[in-house]
Amino acid sequence: MTTSAPAARGERDGRADGAAPARPAVLTMQQAINRALAEALAEDPRTLVFGEDVGRLGGVFRVTDGLQRRFGEDRVFDTPLAESGIVGLAVGLAMNGWRPVPELQFDGFAYPAVDQIVNQVARMHYRTRGAAPMPVTLRVPSFGGIRAPEHHGESLEALFAHVPGLKVCAPSSPAEAHQLLLQSVRADDPVVYLEPKARYWERGPVPDDGPAPPVGTSRVVRPGRHATLVAWGAMVHRCLQVARLAAEDGVELEVVDLRWLKPIDADGLAASVARTRRAVVVHEAPLTAGLGAEVAALVQERAFRSLAAPVQRVTGFDVPYPAGPLEPKYLPTVDRVLLAVQRVLEF
């Protein structure tokens, strides 16, 4: 590998104008991320994918399957089991003009890399007064829901959202996974991209690459008028389950997929609460100092006069994710979310 990155190719969108829109492919989230990585590698020769087992094996969750064969060992490669080194490598590559997309194999293994993430990736652009941008997309298979052992299920979003200089996003569906990853890779700022492991096997339509909503926008995934459920990652699916159950009782819940956890779409939250007057935020991470507190603060700052009830939080508990069969007791259940909905409806 040479030490400086090749020049970027020109226009990235090669689709012919006027072509009939094809029916979108139905992919799992794993396949959708794989496709986005392949498209990112194809469109820009400066893009590099690396991490533990991402090359020859194709990733523990098959997310990088076939990429090394297709793009070669110089652009998709395995690293030693040393997360600080993986992210440190990304820093040096980015300073030399490359666009690294490293993977940290599991959320719990992001902790050994926190020094590089917080002290280098997040602030290099700031430290160099703009001379050394960090177009790094850090992929982290995240959150719980697969009854994994310790260190294989963690919610890092509040930790990284708190660090100046980082953007953070978490997809909730195959289509979102594809679009958010391409958007993250194309951004010149570092993005921590948190993949919900529990939704890796979900299948859904994935439209072709195209215009994406701006960084920091949320999405209403189900409209409703009685209360807003705010979630991200796998909890969007949980909130949609709750919304379907609530509909049986005549309660229409709006579900907002936050998508970007930094920056948070405060305007989108305020607009939803202006319609529903009530909000419940649902996340897997522990309650205390979780991102739910940030959402609640933004909603009361932006939409105080709309609110008919205090914002409720339904979260994990202030303990580590329990391993194995206890995990479903930790994650927000439909009943816990429904009880919070009842509290905001009856306040």
Binding site: V60, F61, F106, G145, I146, R147, A148, P149, H152, G153, K197, A198, W201, H226, Q241, L245, A246, D249, G250, V251, T333, V334, D335, L338, L339, V341, Q342, L345, E346
Partner: peptide
């Protein structure tokens, strides 16, 4: 298999019923 298990997609059982506003 992999680390962990593929989550089942059974619809979750509920006990809480809502009273509409």
């Amino acid at each position: 298999g992999i680390v962990g298990t593929v989550p089942d997609e059974e619809p979750p059982a509920r006990r809480v019923r809502l009273r509409p506003p």
